[in-house]
Design a protein around this nucleic acid. Sequence first.
DNA 1: AAAAGTGTCTTGTAATACGAAACATCATTT
DNA 2: AAATGATGTTTCGTATTACAAGACACTTTT
Lengths: 271, 271
Amino acid sequence: MTTARPDGGVKSVQLAFDVLEAVAAAPGEVGVSELAALLGTTKGTVFRHLQTLVERGYVEQNTVSTRYKLGTRSYLIGQVAAGRIELLTASSDAIASLRDEIGETVVVSALRNRTLIVLRTVFGKSNLEIGVRQGSELVLHGTAQGKVALAFSNRSLLQHVLRQGLTRLTDHTIVEPARLEAELEQARAQGFITAANEETFGINAVAAPIFDRSGDVAGTVAIVGSVQNIRPDPVPAQIEALLKASLRISWNLGYDRGAVDARRRLDSAAS
Amino acid sequence: MTTARPDGGVKSVQLAFDVLEAVAAAPGEVGVSELAALLGTTKGTVFRHLQTLVERGYVEQNTVSTRYKLGTRSYLIGQVAAGRIELLTASSDAIASLRDEIGETVVVSALRNRTLIVLRTVFGKSNLEIGVRQGSELVLHGTAQGKVALAFSNRSLLQHVLRQGLTRLTDHTIVEPARLEAELEQARAQGFITAANEETFGINAVAAPIFDRSGDVAGTVAIVGSVQNIRPDPVPAQIEALLKASLRISWNLGYDRGAVDARRRLDSAAS
DNA sequence: AAAAGTGTCTTGTAATACGAAACATCATTT
DNA sequence: AAATGATGTTTCGTATTACAAGACACTTTT
């Protein structure tokens, strides 16, 4: 599914992570044969990799079923990572208040490598849980988060998206480049954008950008819910709370509008 | 520090995880040279491994400082693992109530591979935070958690510990095998055990075992605090709440005392 | 009783991960 | 301003080693 990887580093390590991620993607426990088929390799190879992963504790083997699942080391490294990822530590308080104030699901995503990845979702107060799975990738032209990221990033990201083509997800998905451009302009003007029914029918989201200390887009915050609770024109309280949260997070990341603008002027003067 | 690994699986993958874990262990960002020195290998090799890790998103490179830190994928795989590790899902509610009821720090550890690893610690209500770092290893003969795990596990685990030798950590550490045996007997009789000043002076803990569906020790729950708040003879409320939590977690793991005993009788009759 | 699964183990070979050393950028020092 | 000593990055030949194929032991299904 992923674009053919142009031979990155250490081949056997790539396979090891393929195995690890396949184990992670499996709903329950997985067997060696199943993994081998999934990854298009032999049982022996998968087995050997599982051995290392088990020895390291990233994967565990159920001694009775002899099948495999994620191990404690995987969890623990994630715990360490949670404390090291600025976007997470910077956003935790702000998204908790945002959720409590508005009651809708709050989603934080990170822009990494031309993709928006969902880092954290905190479900709203409603009994019906609407959210986006952590780790999943947000379509840049088809979600509020994606559009707001595009609006405030380098034009090169937009060009990249246009080159890939604007695939239709629902009949409200933006597929005309001109309309997308107009939306991005609107996002820049307002500081936020919505995306009712564009990715999934019946669902809407309002997203705002998060900036890092150098003024680049680090990610997005968004509130997500049914079109009933988040209208195409969201109520002012929702917008205000969202913008407040996004500013607070950016601030925690060291973003300072004035300082960034000044630095930009210097840089362009130098070149 | 760890016992010389007897050549487990794929060598280059071992190195890759060495690199990953070294990045995780570093307080902030790390450089290639630093890592190479730390791992006793060359810069080139470390660099190549970092490339794969970065490509996969487990590690990220700060483009301005060119140094490395843990990446979002590490966090995300941990999130998935958190949902797959039975001991975590089974204990989350119980430890939250336990902490709220008693107010002291609660620590859950898992028995994996003859070692007790701290999975989760929830700090108590006091302003002074006393806890055990997640991912750290608990000394089996020198902590309440370790002793309770020894008490309810196979004798082979105890033999393993005795073979290693009972290293002294404080002047209250149990270093005589006979005294350890006596403590284990007490733990079995009471269903819990304390360990005042045995690992760190001034600190005490009360621990109880967690059993899985086959009746084996899966881990421990413990409350940890200063000797002032957790006395060598803990107050009944603390003991009762701890035992209630441990039973609740074991139950969530599928432990059923009657069923396990019956199964044991059948097994021994068959042999 | 046979057949089709499973996970595990062995072996020869071709691929590849490694180490050493060179290279390109920086800061700092001289 | 030149020189030094860091850093991260790249190249290259070789010895290592990870791989595929197939055998094996075992359980479950037919």
